[in-house]
Design a protein around this nucleic acid. Sequence first.
DNA 1: GTGAAAGCGCTAACAG
DNA 2: CTGTTAGCGCTTTCAC
Lengths: 340, 340
Amino acid sequence: MAVQGTGPRRPTIEDVARAAGVSRGTVSRVLNGGSHVRPEVMARVNSAVTSLGYSVNQAARNLASGKTGSVAYVISEHHEHLFGDPNFGNFVRIFSRELRKQGRHLIVTTAQDYEEEKFLGEYLTAGHVDGALFALPHEGEALLERLARTGLPLVVQGQPVGYEESLSWVAIDDEAAAFEAVTYLAGQGRSRIATVTGPLNTSSGRGRLAGYRRAVGLGRSRGWSVEGDWTMGSGRRGAHQLVHRHPDMDGLFVGSDLMALGALEALREAGRDIPEHVAVVGFDDSAAALAADPPLTTVNQSFEKAAVEAVRVLGQLIDGALSGPQHVLVPTRLVRRRSA
Amino acid sequence: MAVQGTGPRRPTIEDVARAAGVSRGTVSRVLNGGSHVRPEVMARVNSAVTSLGYSVNQAARNLASGKTGSVAYVISEHHEHLFGDPNFGNFVRIFSRELRKQGRHLIVTTAQDYEEEKFLGEYLTAGHVDGALFALPHEGEALLERLARTGLPLVVQGQPVGYEESLSWVAIDDEAAAFEAVTYLAGQGRSRIATVTGPLNTSSGRGRLAGYRRAVGLGRSRGWSVEGDWTMGSGRRGAHQLVHRHPDMDGLFVGSDLMALGALEALREAGRDIPEHVAVVGFDDSAAALAADPPLTTVNQSFEKAAVEAVRVLGQLIDGALSGPQHVLVPTRLVRRRSA
DNA sequence: GTGAAAGCGCTAACAG
DNA sequence: CTGTTAGCGCTTTCAC
């Protein structure tokens, strides 16, 4: 390579070493925590770093250490819709903020079809990232299956059905949240409480139904639940069905705010006043809950906390500070509004 | 370094070279497009690559080439709200998809406060990324100022006020879109058309007003416009003001769907039927436009196209295939619904 | 504690 | 067209 001209070359660790009057190795030690380095030397090195405006070259560090310093947020084929979810942006924001504290970067990876998903699988397993955060999977996620086998440090958002034991995950405590919501309805004097659930092939759908069942008692739950699919339309249909099946229904727990919006419509059509005739509780504490008429009593999920936890666990997994898979249940909070 | 045991080492370019019976350099050439390599050799190398399950080590490549292979999506301090915007997810999705075609990764970077913004600035200018996509800035964006000076390949989403000439950007053609919308109103026989604009310190706000003015004629525009701030409330107030100032108003062009929702309310309160008394056109073609009563005639922005263009331009900028700053105006499309 | 030196895996210039 | 070779900047033993 030709002699470098007078062009402004980025300072390297070598430059810092020279300026501080130490060896390259010592500078490296300082850069990586400064253990086994005398305080005065450390100070000298640090001041050289700042005065030279030095900043480490990630690529070189990665190559030498075998670590990439980045983490993938994996959105698989089936989760395209997540992009339309306002929470997605929040996750990205929190993830990248928390990862930065660990000195890592967030790389958003998506697979929009089967072909890309294969490509993504190769990419992730080829050592391009130190770990991955996996967006809310549902049953039969092929990519998850594959990653699970490779041993790549991995934290799943939500409980991965079928891998509850073998993988690490951070999830909302759906069961407890639903239990609390339904118990609250009961505490309001409601005794004939029905539910519109989420899809029962998702852990959220299942968990919330389980909480409902525990609260009303198993005997009571027969015929008082209808499965929805998170959409407003399914909430409307579900509530319609329920209110006609059980005209004396006085409480309704709906698996999501959006579905609850639909349910509200159906109940109104059936001539029910909310909350006088039927008290309604939603789930998510989304914007929709506030916009609803009447505003929805609902379950707040603290996505923030869940996201922070996920990154924390992943970091420890990557650093080898944790032994087996970790499971974190993040608590929820009931938000009282006018619908119940 | 100790002798590697029998552990499954990732194959390197060297292994591929040996398997294919060529030199490392040749493999590298094949990996990088295969120019100046005989087809048969190329085939041999490629088959070695697949049979060995080889995939390139980014870190090593980055170190050797001085390129990082990644691009930052910069969300500065002032754009936190973007995370709540459903379009954000779309941008991320499209950006990462398009970048992958260029062999690049998307890194989402955020600065949540001034301190972090400084940190981010250092990060970006320290050569960690090959280029950056900058989210819709508004006036006086300090980070943009800084990046503009460093010469980092950069494409801005939206017209950066103050840097229209010096930076590359991809934006909606607001002026033309507004012109089309207002001309459409005129074509419907409306002759007393008012407007509620977006904030006039944004290029979108300004551009849409300019289009309105060109369509109605400069003389006409005096007193027929009120500035809003993109919120529903500001749309309501604006329309309220206008309808009382000009009781004979028969057309209203609103700078965003959300503001239009508010405007609809105000007009109804003032006893106006839509579109009989006042025809209303919004902007964005958002979900709100469809949900409105009546559904809004509005301007569709093709975020998809804008995002694709931004990545294309950035890629060329990084590759040095382009000389000066590039400016792309993405056309829009008027979507007719019942409000006008 | 600190220095010296051996790579990490790849690209790119240079011969031929 | 292809092989050879010199680094890219850093981490990490291994001595001292």
